[in-house]
């Protein structure tokens, strides 16, 4: 193999090489994380890493690198520049196709090869633990009563949290002030300190404070409540949180996919290898435990399903961004 290395090096530059029928990584695989250390995407990548390593699904080691600069653009640009290199797997969310809409970021999702959406994170409306608001109906009334002074915290700007807020604006016919923070964790600290009125965090971002009674979820933006599971607090499990729709907020479903992608122009054999690898990962007990613990929906999309999903989601974001005047071009 070593003697062939120069040859392999040259062939890696070609779109697809027929010589390598059964493709396997020949060196350490780099997991590129397009968010800050310790964030949802980091934990996603490390959960995959843990599942692969504990079950010996791959012979080569895995190196996790954090490239969360520019809201993740750093990681995507880095992966784009590694065109043809099947030893880099970039982990992200829908920011891979949403970021280029609102900022000049020097990549689009078409520069990458999506491999699998492995899990979908939920969004919920949260209020402070001792807030008098009991349910989503009470939430809508309270927002309206504040007359345009309701403050909603969220992670980043022109990203999913602000988008949910905009959709919420429209659904309930009110004007909410959106306050962007660096991460959902920061937003949670601010809400539990009573400095803001609500936020729309993912379950995992707020579960610690929910257990402590400092924040409380009102409803989830999904068609159905979450899957039944153990109690999180003394009285409630995730499945006890009603859907926002059932409470009269007309937003059907809003979820955040967690997607792993290769750079562009990689050999088809490599794509097949990683599709197979991630499919196996999704079957491991470690992975199922991760999905349940973070209260996400474990739904794996690969190949045509994934492309269809991305195209649909992209159009939906584009429409809202156009209306808000956020589109960069």
């Amino acid at each position: 193999m070593n003697k062939l290395a120069p040859l392999a090096f040259a062939m890696a530059l070609l779109p697809a090489s027929a010589a390598l029928a059964e493709w396997k990584p020949s060196k350490a695989v780099e997991f590129v994380v397009t968010a800050g250390a310790g964030g949802g995407t980091d934990i996603f990548a490390r959960a995959v890493q843990a599942a692969v390593q504990k079950n010996n699904l791959m012979s080569q080691p895995i190196i996790v690198t954090i490239k969360g600069g520019g809201s993740g653009a750093e990681g995507y640009v880095y992966t784009k520049s590694a065109e043809g290199d099947p030893h880099k797997l970039v982990f992200g969310t829908h920011n891979m196709y949403v970021l280029p809409l609102a900022a000049k970021v020097a990549f689009t999702h078409r520069d990458l090869t999506p491999i699998a959406a492995m899990v979908f994170d939920e969004f919920m409306i949260w209020v402070k633990g001792d807030s008098p608001i009991k349910d989503a109906k009470g939430f809508v009334e309270a927002v309206k009563a504040k007359g345009g002074q309701w403050k909603m915290a969220g992670a980043q700007s022109k990203d999913s949290d602000e988008l949910v807020t905009k959709l919420l604006d429209k659904a309930i016919g009110a004007k909410i002030i959106y306050v962007p923070y660096k991460s959902g964790g920061e937003a949670d600290v601010q809400l539990s300190g009573g400095h803001l009125d609500s936020h729309v965090n993912n379950p995992a971002e707020s579960v610690g404070n929910w257990k402590a009674g400092k924040v409380r979820p009102l409803c989830v933006f999904n068609r159905e409540p979450l899957a039944a599971g153990p109690k999180v607090t003394e009285t409630q499990a995730w499945s006890d949180i009603p859907t926002c729709r059932s409470q009269g907020i007309a937003i059907d479903q809003f979820q955040q996919p967690r997607i792993a992608s290769l750079p562009g122009k990689v050999p088809a054999e490599a794509v097949a290898f990683y599709q197979d690898l991630l499919r196996k990962v999704a079957e491991t007990p470690e992975w199922k435990e991760y999905v349940a613990r973070t209260a996400q929906s474990g739904r794996v999309l690969i190949g045509g399903d994934l492309t269809k999903f991305i195209d649909g989601d992209y159009v939906r974001f584009q429409a809202v961004f156009k209306e808000e005047g956020w589109l960069v071009q």
Binding site: M1, K3, A5, P6, F9, A28, P61, I63
Partner: peptide
């Protein structure tokens, strides 16, 4: 496990 930048010489030597 922090890869530094490598070029054709390393590739030729078979070091990734």
């Amino acid at each position: 496990h922090v890869p530094l930048m490598k070029g054709p010489v390393e590739a030729w030597l078979g070091i990734h």
